[in-house]
């Protein structure tokens, strides 16, 4: 779907992207990274709106710089910026952008209506954009991005400004347009948890550099230890620190801040870690509040890079 080789973008002396080699397969792909990681710059290059300082990129088999117009007729885009023509009804807005993306006028009108119904704004489609809530505006952005039936949709921070319920609904919608209508999606987000929930693939950036890429299942989810939460008991003071010390002495990697009751224990084998934790708790006479398998998360990838 997207392939980049040696992709660099430098603004003045600041490298926004640093020699990225990226291959994104079809499906829902999360482009993750902190603010300023280079996500929006990467999307701009993918759309052919910026010329990279060096490197090449191919999107849907097309060169965004040479075949930009042809490419963008098949790509929907939902920008991060949440500003719209306030006095324009949502249906007119979506219809107009569908027309600009190549839909004949009559078809654009019906597709605008269908897209707005799909994102849950069917009853609100004639309302002016300026009277809509942030959640509704995010849905309008999604509707305009899909109205012209693109092959690929790029969504820049599509859950920005949404409350938890709205966020869940938006993520479900994004997953739905990929599964039900075979539209590939690349969404940028700085919220790793939401990417883990709906994405098939991940491209992780940090300060313009590639941190990780690949199928989400390959990158996260492996059991790599145990997370245990202990309770301090009055007659056995220091039992939590004692558990931590015993596990370290057994050669395991323990992430445990002083005075905290929760610790992450990592080791070569999940079973070995579980046994060691059990023994340490028993020997220290600590009280267990919670114990669970620790699965690798995207956050761990970023922490490893920063470490």
């Amino acid at each position: 779907m997207i392939a980049a080789t040696g992709l660099s973008m430098v603004f003045g002396s600041h490298p926004a992207l640093d020699a990225l080699d990226v291959a994104v397969p079809p499906g829902v792909t999360g482009l993750v990274g902190a603010n300023g990681a280079g996500k929006t710059t990467f999307m701009s290059i993918v759309l052919g709106l910026r010329t990279p300082t060096s490197g090449t990129v191919s999107v849907l088999g097309l060169d965004p710089l040479r075949q930009g117009a042809e490419l963008r007729a098949n790509v929907g885009y939902g920008p991060e910026r949440n500003v719209f023509p306030d006095d324009m009804p949502a249906s007119d807005f979506v219809k107009h952008l569908a027309e600009v993306r190549g839909m004949p006028r009559g078809e654009a009108r019906s597709r605008a209506s269908d897209a707005l119904w799909l994102v849950g704004l069917g009853e609100e489609r004639f309302r002016a954009l300026g009277t809509m809530s942030t959640g509704q505006r995010q849905r309008v952005k999604l509707a305009q991005a899909i109205a012209a039936d693109p092959s690929l949709v790029l969504l820049d921070e599509p859950t920005d400004g949404l409350d938890p319920v709205q966020r869940d609904e938006m993520l479900a919608l994004i997953r739905q347009i990929s599964e039900d209508y075979q539209i590939d999606v690349m969404l940028s987000s700085h919220l790793l948890e939401e990417v883990e929930r709906i994405c098939d693939n991940v491209v992780a950036l940090d300060a313009g550099r590639l941190v990780a890429q690949g199928r989400l299942d390959d990158l996260v989810g492996d059991v790599e230890g145990v997370t245990v939460e202990l309770a301090e008991i009055d007659d056995v003071p220091g039992s939590i620190d004692d558990v931590s010390a015993r596990l370290r002495a057994a050669g395991l990697e323990v992430h445990h801040g002083p005075g905290l009751s929760r610790m992450d224990v990592l080791g070569a084998s999940a079973d070995e870690v579980a046994d060691a934790v059990r023994d340490a708790i028993v020997d220290s006479r600590a009280r267990v509040r919670r114990i669970e398998q620790r699965r690798r998360k995207l956050e761990d990838l970023f922490e490893a890079v920063q470490a």
Binding site: E99, M103, R111, W117, L118, I146
Partner: peptide, 28 residues
């Protein structure tokens, strides 16, 4: 119930994009 669906018909391309933008601007 037509609902959202795939589109395999003709697209108006760059000419349609220019025409639609010009018309929309004039209306506005």
């Amino acid at each position: 119930d037509r609902g959202y669906r795939k589109y395999d018909g003709k697209r108006s391309g760059l000419v349609g994009a220019v025409r639609s933008t010009a018309w929309h601007s004039a209306r506005s």
